[in-house]
Every structure is written in structure tokens, then in C-alpha cells.
Design a protein around this nucleic acid. Structure first.
Lengths: 309, 309
DNA sequence: CGATGTGAAAAGGTTCACAGCC
DNA sequence: GGCTGTGAACCTTTTCACATCG
């Protein structure tokens, strides 16, 4: 719960990296913070499908892939944009436009051949090659990630675990020995590597700097901190606290249609009357992180899935 | 790994709920899938600050809150839009416009009073009231969430645990007895409740339907499935697989500037040659889920945070 | 003077509608 | 006939530039 300078980095002391990379939306689109100057970004071929895929489209490709895989396992041969879109929960026009950015993989009057489209999207996402995953921070989170079997079978393979806590360095977690961060190095010549950051928020920025200086250019950040990285490095964040707060915002609005919700403009605080200076404030989940793991028990066979309205 | 109809719901059999709510971007903006007809959406007051806050802005409020909290703990009194924006990794203009949607909480020529702005944003996010959190699915994920202390101290309090696996029903997890889903009910008159779905993908939709029929209108979904819910219900998803795939996409593009990446248009498969029909496909992490938990060990004191470049 | 707040312009993304093709 | 692919309209979001005010 110690939110030191790592949280708000640049404000406190001097730090090298700039070009902060936000979370979801702002992660890559145009330039986020790269400066007002670099408009255009037509560095490559413009008419080449594969180039210039909108970020919003990229974010939906995994969903399409998922739905397609489900269809494939069910034995479905072809699917229309209408049906596939319904499965993913988007409009059919959006789906078609998305796919058109990758190329023309459909057949007019028929639809899309499931297997073919599946391969194409996989290829576009880079899932035809192997991806090395290194996990930094072997707490509850990192441990579960390391033990997560889904990695290996999907093209993402854990190849290294790192932590600086003496308590865990040297320990063998799921076949991998936890090594100290000082020994960190990007596996296999620096390409096709993704680092998963599962360290406390307080040290996340410093660890991130270290990774970047070692050549890492893709980071999945579980710490509730906005990492500041140089241009060319991609960061995506998974943040439970933010998600809950966003849900709270919408829920609250639904519940109180008339209320403005804001505290009375001029003065201290009204409305609920509660809320100490920073007691309830934001910054939830600092020092903690999300944890990914297998799901052994959980809901088994639902009694009756009723719920029809 | 059993992807039954829950994954692609609407395609397979008849299902009641429509209006699929996607993940991040499409979660709420205009209508996502509500139909082409409902343009306008000026149902409420239009000039009332608090109403009509853009979704993109809402998604950034938690970040602002976090940065402000850090500043407050450091004792900072005021902050400029420039400095705060830098901390969050956005442009100062964007920050000012975001805040302008909430109201005018700054002082020209000076900046923003940290404490005041912090309270205002908290109020807008609805963090002045208590939020009941129920966790469905007490596997590794749900268990960790239940034990996560950050909830209670931040306005989010776990008030119920549910699972249908006989192995865990009745078990006491962190002070709460796990109850069967059949006993599920929305706590305290159906308001201010958020359900966290931590069940396997295969049953996520059915459990979701059940929750919705019980009156839940805000769901945080950890299962790698697009949930289809009726209008008025908000769903947000946390999805490790998608995040990794999106990172892979960008990394791959960085690594191979010239390659089109797509498989040769006409035929089977080229490029790597690998990739069976659905072996590497998408659908990663099905049946699994992310897990949030305390982070006891992890990186302690970094050796030297070097990484200056 | 300096920093906010905000119209206006630009960019990005979504939806419509239909031409084109099987 | 039916469905894809896509230009065009529309909406959201970002960015610019500057009037405004402490």
C-alpha cells in the first residue's frame, strides 16, 4: 500500500523514459503521446492489406478468432458475417469492415470459410510463430501465470521467471528456476518476446525500465500503474480497480437518473457526506495485482440455467 | 478446454438475451448493438455536467484518480494539467477536456487543487457510496478475489461468494461461506451491486443469464467469452489471451517491417508452414481465467534500478 | 503572465446503403 | 437471391489554438 514515486514517476524525480503508453484504447492507435508532429504515419505501403489495420480492429481480432475456433470445433464449414458478428456481439457491417482491412477472405453470396478465415486471422495476429513469455515477479500472480498450461499449447511459451525477493529466487516453479532480475536477458536474440509484469505497483516502473533497457518491446502490465516507456515499446495493462470503477460509474448513473452526482461545485462535500480526503479515493489495488491461473473447481454443472429473462 | 455453446451462444441455439455487450471500447458508447434506430440518445439533460460524460473520458478517470492520490500522499497541494497529464501519459489538452466534462474544478493561472479534484472525480465515479461485490465461481480466481483486502478499504466490499461445485459449497473462504448459485440473490434491494464472474468459459453465459435475471446490472467478466446481455446491463471483460494476442500483433509488425504477414491469399498456408487447423488457433485460455490476489513476495528491493535508457 | 476552459478543426471509428459478385 | 466488400455519411474522440480569467 506504499505508493511511492513509482506510481507517478515523471512528476517526482528525473526519469529517462517518456512517451507514456496508457492502457487499452491509447495503447497504440496513432501516437498517443509521441508528439503532435508525427501525423500521417504512412511509413509503409498504404495499399498493402496487413498494413494500416486500425487499432480498434486489432482489438477485436482475438474475439473473432475465438468465435471461429468454437465454430470450427463444432464442425461448421462456413459462416456469414451476420452470424459471426452476432456471436461476437458486434454489427455485421463492422465485422465485414474489420475483415476487409486484412484482405478479402469471404465469398460473396456464401460467407466465410471458417477454417480459412481462422488461419488468416491467426497469421495476422502473429500466432503462426512461437512467442517467448517471461514473467517478472513471482508472487501469487506470477506463480499462477507460470503454472498456467494454456500458454504452451497456444504459441505462447513461458521461458523465464524472474524475481528479486530472496525468498523465491532459486525456487523451482513449474519447471523453471526463478532467477534474480540482475540476470535478466531477452531470450533468443530479442525477437518474439513478451514480458509479463506481475510486480507490485511501487516498483513496476523501475522494473519496466530495466526490461526496456534489456531490449523488451512488448509488456503486459498487471500493476495498477501507468508505465512510461520510450517510443516503440508497447504496453497493455490489466487493471481490476479501473474496471470496477468504470462499472461503478455506469451503475451509479443508472440508479440515480436525476442526480448530478458531482459534489456541489463551490464547496467541500455534499451528496453522501462521506469520503475522507483520500480514504476511499482511487488507487485501489495498489501493490496488488491480478492473477491468472487455472480454474480447478468453480461452477460445475449448473443446476438449471433458467435465466430466460 | 471444452468450448460448448456457451462460447458462441446465439449461433448455436435459441437464447433469450440480446444486445451483446463487448469488452472495453464498445461497452457503452452509443448503442453498440442496440439497433440502428435509436440515434440521438439525448434522454436526459444535455447541459448538465455529469450527464453525457464521454465513455473514453470515463475510462481515464480511474487513472487520474490514481495519479491524484499519489500526489496527495506526497503532500502536493496543486497540480497543473501539464504535470498531471504527464503522470498519466496523456496530452494536457485531453486531460483538460476530460475534466471539463465533469465541471470546472481548476483555477486559471494556477492549476487544480489536488484534494478537491480528487474528491470530485471520486464522486463522479460513484466512490462515495459503498459497493457490494459478489463473486461467482470460487476457483483459484474467485478465491483470490475473495481474499483480496483491497476491496473492503476502497468502497468495494465482498458480500457474497457463490459456486455450484459440491467441493467448495459450504466452505468458508475469507469469512464468507460459499453458497450454491441457486441461492443467489442481489444484496440490499438490488442497487449498488457488482458481480464478478470467475467461472469457466463454458458456463459463463448461463451463469450470466442467471445473474441478470436476478437483477444484476453490472458484471466484471473474467471468462474469455463475449457475454450477451439485455440492454441496460453493463459488462466489462478482463482477458489475458486477447491482450497477449494484441501485443503479438504489434510486436510482429515491428519485427517484420516488410512482410505482409498474411498467408498467401489464395491457398492453404504459407509463411511459417506450421499452424494446424485449430491447434494454435485463438481461443486461448478457455476455461481458465485471470486471478486477482495479494502479492506477498515478488520483487522486493530492486538491486539498482539502472535502466537509464 | 500563466494556466484553464472551450470552440473549431482534424482524425479515427462506426453505420448505412448499395454496387458487385457468386 | 444472397452476401461480401466498400464508398459515403455520421458520430465519437483527439488535437489545436486561443479567448478568458485569476
Amino acid at each position: 500500500m506504499n505508493i511511492d514515486d513509482a506510481t507517478v514517476g515523471p512528476l517526482g524525480g528525473p526519469r529517462p523514459a517518456q512517451a507514456a503508453t496508457g492502457t487499452r484504447d491509447g495503447a497504440a492507435p496513432g501516437g498517443e503521446d509521441g508528439g503532435p508532429g508525427d501525423a500521417g504515419r504512412d511509413d509503409g505501403a498504404r495499399d498493402d492489406p496487413g498494413r494500416g489495420v486500425p487499432e480498434a480492429t486489432v482489438a477485436r481480432l482475438p474475439q473473432y478468432l475465438r468465435a471461429l475456433t468454437a465454430l470450427a470445433e463444432r464442425g461448421t464449414e462456413t459462416v456469414s458475417s451476420e452470424a459471426l458478428a452476432a456471436a461476437v456481439g458486434v454489427g455485421s457491417a463492422k465485422l465485414r469492415k474489420d475483415l476487409s482491412h486484412l484482405g478479402s477472405y469471404g465469398t460473396r453470396g456464401v460467407g466465410y470459410e471458417v477454417g480459412h478465415l481462422l488461419r488468416q486471422i491467426s497469421a495476422h495476429l502473429g500466432l503462426t510463430q512461437h512467442w517467448n513469455v517471461v514473467i517478472i515477479g513471482i508472487g501469487n500472480l506470477g506463480r499462477s501465470l507460470a503454472g498456467y498450461g494454456g500458454f504452451a499449447s497456444r504459441g505462447f511459451g513461458v521461458v523465464g521467471l524472474y524475481d528479486d525477493s530472496p525468498a523465491v529466487v532459486g525456487e523451482c516453479v513449474n519447471g523453471h528456476v526463478v532467477r534474480p532480475l540482475s540476470e535478466f536477458e531477452v531470450p533468443s536474440a530479442g525477437c518474439a518476446t513478451i514480458a509479463v509484469l506481475a510486480v507490485p505497483a511501487a516498483v513496476a516502473q523501475r522494473v519496466c525500465d530495466l526490461l526496456v533497457s534489456a531490449g523488451v518491446t512488448s509488456i503486459l502490465n498487471f500493476a495498477p500503474v501507468v508505465l512510461h516507456v520510450p517510443e516503440g515499446v508497447h504496453v497493455r495493462r490489466v487493471d481490476l480497480a479501473s474496471e470496477l470503477q468504470i462499472l461503478a460509474f455506469h451503475e451509479q448513473r443508472k440508479a440515480a437518473p436525476g442526480r448530478t452526482t458531482a459534489l456541489v461545485d463551490g464547496a467541500t462535500l455534499v451528496d453522501g457526506g462521506r469520503l475522507g480526503s483520500r480514504a476511499l479515493a482511487g488507487q485501489a489495488l495498489d501493490g496488488q495485482a491480478l492473477e491468472a491461473a487455472l480454474q480447478p473447481s468453480a461452477v460445475g454443472t449448473l443446476p438449471r440455467a433458467g435465466a430466460t429473462r
